[in-house]
Design a protein around this nucleic acid. Sequence first.
DNA 1: CGTGACTTTGATCAACTTCAAGCTACGTGG
DNA 2: CCACGTAGCTTGAAGTTGATCAAAGTCACG
Lengths: 244, 244
Amino acid sequence: MGFAPTKASCPDCRLSELCLPFGLQRNEVQQLATIVKNQRVLQTDGYLYLQSAECLHLYAVKSGSFRSFILNADGLEQTIGFYLPGEIMGLDALQSGRYSCSTIALETGSVCEVPLSRLNELCSEIPGLQIQMMRILGKEIASDHDKIVLLGHRTAKERVATFLLMLSRRYGALGFSGTTFNLSMRRQDIANFLGLTIETVSRQLAELSKQGIIIVKQRGVEIIDLPLLTTIVEPCVTHRHTIA
Amino acid sequence: MGFAPTKASCPDCRLSELCLPFGLQRNEVQQLATIVKNQRVLQTDGYLYLQSAECLHLYAVKSGSFRSFILNADGLEQTIGFYLPGEIMGLDALQSGRYSCSTIALETGSVCEVPLSRLNELCSEIPGLQIQMMRILGKEIASDHDKIVLLGHRTAKERVATFLLMLSRRYGALGFSGTTFNLSMRRQDIANFLGLTIETVSRQLAELSKQGIIIVKQRGVEIIDLPLLTTIVEPCVTHRHTIA
DNA sequence: CGTGACTTTGATCAACTTCAAGCTACGTGG
DNA sequence: CCACGTAGCTTGAAGTTGATCAAAGTCACG
């Protein structure tokens, strides 16, 4: 899963419409490309950066997928999110200048390295880039809010269904199939992300299979009944009172 | 609780070190003040803005406190966060241009209204302001991540303890007492924010009282044993294996 | 003093976790 | 090529935490 690695720099990158260059003029994208270091390659379980390390770069996913997590004082992980191609990692460091989470590769992948200081300079020169940065930051915030809703008031089944839909939409936006894809993360990662145990995730996936809504074969997932999966996530009033 | 309303504009505002002006030159602060509309006053339960309304302004809390929440398709609320003086509201709208949550006043309070378009222009002119905006956005992201950790892997007691500590630190940073304060939100709001029920919050507060860690009297809270409260939030390995 | 909103407390119940065992896929070495 | 080992996943049974249901208590305000 994921784009095959490529050396294409921003003006020729197929992800440019999802990534930093979105909304920029062609010459502005070229300017941006001059500060972006292509590309760092990571193997499965390789660390992109470590929690509390100094943040000198932001990273854009070029291929593969990544997982970011926070380590508690008691040594337990909480997965914060998964990143797919075109998404920006490291934004949580903008306040303190240090990464507040660690990020590792879920599979072989590559990233573009964007020096933070140069990016800030360029934002002053290119208003469109500054706007796009705000948009990207706003997106991160909005998506974190969605996660808060997910963890705050959802049953196990709703969480698992939401997780699948989230991936479905994001793969779809990348031009991949939104109904058939491989999970690049382990059950453990999913469980941790959703605030559940691995057993509960397994059971809910089995349940969804039994209902004919999805087919699961190890890491492989196929969504059979997308509308039904959606109603699980947003149980509308009309679906609850089926009779009355 | 909260600052008494004041008409002071940015250069004279006692919150300037926490708010947008942080890190700016005096003349830059004055420039910023020209675009900030002082001030909109809200009564308890008054809406500052509504979910999915067009976002034309960001808001800085000048006095009082606020609560933001997302309304689900099925009509239930999830409280996303509480805002105290100096904090910026509306950042979740930067992606789509529409607020992704609603925000209401928990008590009588006031806000500074910052037109988004003018702010973007000014960010291009004042590099320090652009940096500070990034810092503020990064802070929002980092604090959202903390909430995700909270909701993902914490027991009811840990959640309530964390909530109290969060408020304690923020009130402290504002120059108020970090150990004695009034909750401006109802139990219902706390419960909803923490992903618990109102009964559970009540019981956990009672429990903490019984242990002599806090004193609760309606909305009033006094933290008696701050260190102990902290160990509840971060149960270190050394505290778990008390004997072995 | 009475009303209504909010909060506390108690008893029961359900969902999810924990503990335990077995299964599957995959890689390695005999 | 197959036996074996291991990591990851699934399934089952028992245990807990927090939710739900119900009722009583407290405070503010008219």
